[in-house]
Every structure is written in structure tokens, then in C-alpha cells.
Simulated assay, not measured.
Amino acid sequence: MFLVTGATGTVGQEVVRHFPADLPVRIMVRDPARAAFAGRAAQTVTGDHGDPRSLAGALTGVRVAFLVTSRVGGDDDARFLRAARAAGVRRVVKLSAAAVLDPRADDLITRWQRANEELLRASGLEWTLLRPRAFMSNTLSWAGSIRSEGVVRALYGMAANSCVDPRDIATVAIRAMTGETHAGRAYTLTGPVALTAVEQTKQLGRLLGTPLRFAELSPYEARALLARRHPAPVVDALLESAARTRDGAKTRVDDTVREVTGRPAGTFAAWAERHVSAFAPR
């Protein structure tokens, strides 16, 4: 049995959708109502990283698990790994972040991910680490202003990031879960080219058939917007990360997607074409 945590998240959903039909997969979710997308192909269990009993139930009979945690600064990874060892899980494939490799990155989120990686490596379980750059799907946060005003508002519009298609991350995750050659490996995952927000805005405009305007946010404005969704320490970490993007820390392109899957990483244009309806006027 294979277990997917974070199954209703950006990458988790893609893992579930593309998991081999001939392999048994179980998804752990806090709210089963949000798992309807999985259909009958996956077994759904209710579980939470903070509930040891539910973790034990979700991990019963599991050989390989895909681990996604999101409560920054929390101990969800430690709880999960304890339960996984007790249940006899063989391998854990963990979603981490490319920033852990940058010695200049010392924000809260990166320190938390580094610590979680260390926990997994020291757990005694087989492990594989996935370290993606920013998700192409992060641009979905622009959809509202594009639909209503034809405007993209973002911080540091000329800062380039080698963002990656979440479907590529999921494909690598599935290979790492189901193959026998990925234990002890750490994969940095990027798209095929580093793009700026201004360039992404132009590509979206071409797909929509209308020019879009890019409006640069000030750090103050960006902080105010982020504070609507995140606690202050996370906002600080996100702004520190954005500053490193501004300074060119996220432009490197790796060919790992091709090396693991046999096909090149998807482009932003291809991702946007699949999701163009999200940006189109309703």
C-alpha cells in the first residue's frame, strides 16, 4: 500500500490523479469531503499529523509514504515519522524546498524544512527528498485581479525564478515512490527556464488574447496582502525569500525532471494553457 498525505494540496492532488492504476493507494485527508476528486481509485482515510491514533490507522499496511507538511514551525514531520516507524513503513518521499541548499537562506520556513530533512535522514527509514522551486500554480493568486481588472500585482516583477510545474513534481514523486533506485536521493526540481513575473504576465495575456498590465507592489503593500493569509513570522519568511529572488538566488535550472522521468520539465506556457480558464472572465 502507498500513502499520500497532503492529498488535497497542489502537488498531492497531482500525485493521486496520476498514480498508477494497478497499484493500491491510500490518501490521508483531514476533511474527506475534499477528497471527492480522487474517485474510487484511492482509499480515503481521515487523519491529521497531530492525532497519533489517526496516523496509526492511516499508516497500517503502508510500505511507502509521500509526506507533505505545511504547519510551519510545527512538529508534524516528527509525529509522522514516529508513527511510520511503528507501522513498519519502508520508505518516505518528502516534499521539501530548493531553498534548503542556499546558505544565504535563513528564514523561518527554510530552517524548518532543513530540520525536517534531518529528521527524515536520521529516522532509519529509506528516504527521498524532493526540493522544488516555486510552483507555477502560485500565479493562480493573480486570477482575481486579472479577471476583474486585467492587472497582475506582484513584488519584484523583474526578479527571475525557475518555477516548476506541480505535475512534474508529482511525476517525480510517483517515480520515487514506486521505483527501487531513488532511496537516499535528493532531487532539486525546476522548470526549463527562469521567468520573471513580468514575463509570466505577458504569456498569460497572449493566451487570453488581451494585454495584461503588471503593477509592481512595494514591500509594504506585499506585506499587507500576505498578512491577510499568514501569521507575521511566516510573512517575514516569505518576504525574505522574495528578496533572495530579487537578488538572483533562484535562477538556476536543473535537468532533474528529465533525468528522473525521461521527459523535459514542462514550460510555464504549457501549464498556463491547461489552466487558462482560471484567469478568463466569467
Rank of each mutant, 00 (worst) to 15 (best):
G157H: 10
A87D: 12
T261L: 12
A87V: 01
D75L: 09
E180P: 10
L155F: 14
E259I: 04
M158W: 04
L212Y: 03
D77M: 13
D168L: 15
A122N: 15
A269N: 03
E126T: 04
H230K: 11
S141K: 01
F37Y: 05
V235R: 06
I169T: 00
A222R: 09
A115Y: 07
L225V: 00
A222V: 07
H182L: 15
G50D: 09
D165P: 08
R167D: 10
K250V: 06
A122M: 09
A84Q: 05
R206Q: 10
L125H: 15
R79T: 08
T256L: 10
A242V: 00
K202H: 05
G150E: 15
T8S: 13
G209T: 12
W127A: 14
R133I: 02
L119N: 14
A242C: 14
V253E: 01
T46L: 08
V68M: 12
R26E: 03
R252F: 10
L95F: 13
R91W: 14
A270E: 11
L195R: 03
T128L: 13
R79Q: 15
Q13H: 01
I174Q: 00
L207V: 02
A105K: 02
L207C: 02
D51T: 03
Q43T: 04
R229F: 07
R274A: 12
E180Q: 12
R223N: 11
S137W: 07
L208E: 14
A7G: 07
R167T: 09
A269E: 12
R71Y: 06
Y220D: 08
A170Y: 01
P233F: 06
R82L: 07
L81A: 09
L140C: 12
A35T: 13
D255T: 04
Y156F: 10
D76V: 07
S145K: 04
P264I: 06
R167G: 07
E126N: 06
A21T: 06
F268L: 02
G61T: 14
R63C: 01
T256M: 08
R17K: 12
V151N: 14
A222T: 02
R206D: 15
F2W: 08
G248W: 05
L239D: 11
V234G: 12
D102Q: 01
V152Y: 05
P132L: 04
V45K: 02
R17V: 10
A243Y: 12
M136S: 05
G9P: 07
T10C: 08
A58P: 05
T139H: 05
G6R: 12
L55D: 08
P264F: 15
T69V: 14
S96P: 06
P231S: 08
A237P: 15
I174W: 04
G205F: 13
T190H: 00
V72Y: 11
V234Y: 14
N116K: 08
I109T: 01
G57C: 14
A154Q: 09
P281F: 01
T190L: 00
R85W: 04
I169F: 02
L95Y: 11
A105L: 14
V64C: 01
G39I: 13
V62E: 01
R213M: 14
F135R: 00
G61K: 03
L129T: 09
K202W: 03
A143F: 13
A134W: 10
P233N: 09
A278S: 02
M136P: 02
L238G: 03
S123M: 11
A197N: 13
V29G: 07
T139A: 08
G248L: 04
Y156G: 08
V193W: 05
